[in-house]
């Protein structure tokens, strides 16, 4: 039985507007619940995929877990230890074990540093070793992520998108992290390069026993790489389960729509089959709108087709994640 490396309980992160000089004069701004009560766990050597539309709070979950953002409430257990509010110096030590691959590597790699310096800085910050040993470690890392040695003296802008990703992965590995939050590691890459990176991440997991939280909106990639998939909608997980079950036997209407829009793309021949549940009005969601009842109700085809049942929009009965067997949980009053 592999042990749980990370557990998140009822995590919340609400952003408030920065208070300006005239704050007290103006109207009160509502806080934005980017993450609004998220619970899940990740076992050792396991990949959990986190999917959802842009703006649903995927990245904020990742950042808050690593304490790059201060959680508003909730609990984060890393390796059995509560890290929700540990002091910074202790946190810094822990960061050697948990790391993040950032989405925008143009912004995450210092443009004024050579690749060698970027990697050796990461090593020496976390480990007390001398230059020669760091150099040896770097060449090991390059081999692991299959990056050419000649690139070490280059600056980030001289690398291609795929190579930058590899540097991002190498930097994370350099500190010896065993839990990695990978934020959209394949977005903005060409398909041929995307395949290389996906293979690399899976390879590393096998060899080094890493655990990933894999954040992406690319559903096929998530399904391929993850053991479990959590689907987020407006700051909440609406469904979580084993990846093939989520993909083929989704219980939440939202998950179903997400995946069927993909299936539709894949087999043009029989689009009718995929359109069994289809939202006609696919409006824009609004974070600042107060939520009453189920968050998905305004866009939900099931809500619409079953005559707008009152339970769906009753503020006191927001659906909670419920176990339906086979480690599959769904938050819906009328699961499919």
């Amino acid at each position: 039985m592999p042990k749980t490396i990370l557990e998140v309980m009822d995590l919340k992160k609400h952003f408030t507007d920065r208070k300006g000089l005239f704050h007290s004069l103006g109207e009160r701004h509502p806080s934005i619940p980017a993450v609004d009560g998220v619970s899940f766990y990740i076992k050792e050597n396991e990949t959990v995929g986190l999917v959802g539309e842009s703006g649903c709070g995927k990245t904020t979950v990742g950042r808050t877990i690593l304490r790059l953002e201060k959680p508003t409430s909730g609990k984060i257990l890393f390796d059995g230890k509560d890290i929700t509010s540990i002091p910074t110096d202790e946190l810094r030590r822990l960061r050697g074990q948990m790391q993040m691959i950032f989405q925008d590597l143009d912004a995450a790699l210092n443009p004024k540093m050579r690749i060698r310096d970027i990697l050796s800085e990461a090593i020496t910050v976390h480990h007390k070793i001398d230059g020669a040993e760091a150099g040896k470690r770097i060449s090991d890392l390059l081999e692991q992520v299959s990056l050419k040695k000649s690139k070490l003296s280059n600056f980030p802008h001289e690398l291609s998108g795929g190579e930058k990703r590899r540097v991002g992965v190498a930097r994370v590995l350099s500190v010896g992290a065993k839990f990695i939050v990978a934020d959209e590691p394949t977005s903005a890459l060409d398909v041929s390069i995307q395949a290389q990176i996906v293979n690399l991440l899976r390879d590393l997991q096998k060899r080094l026993g890493l655990s990933y939280l894999f954040i992406s909106h690319d559903l096929p990639v998530v399904e391929l790489i993850s053991h479990k998939v959590a689907v987020m909608y407006l700051g909440k997980i609406v469904e979580i389960g084993l990846s093939d079950r989520i993909a083929s036997r989704a219980m939440h209407p939202y998950t179903h729509i997400l995946w069927s829009s993909l299936v539709e793309k894949q087999n043009k021949e029989n689009p009718q089959k995929a359109k069994s549940v289809q939202a006609d009005r696919w409006g824009v969601f609004d974070f600042e709108r107060p939520v009453s009842g189920c968050r998905f109700a305004p866009r939900c085809p099931v809500y619409e087709s079953s005559g707008r049942p009152a339970i769906c929009i009753d503020p006191s009965t927001e659906p909670q994640l419920e176990d339906i067997g086979g480690s599959h949980q769904v938050a819906c009053h009328f699961p499919l």
């Binding site: 291609s160 060409d190 041929s192």
Partner: peptide
Amino acid sequence: KRYLQAIEGDV
């Protein structure tokens, strides 16, 4: 859960 067939090298 197969590995993807990547095209080695860069664009």
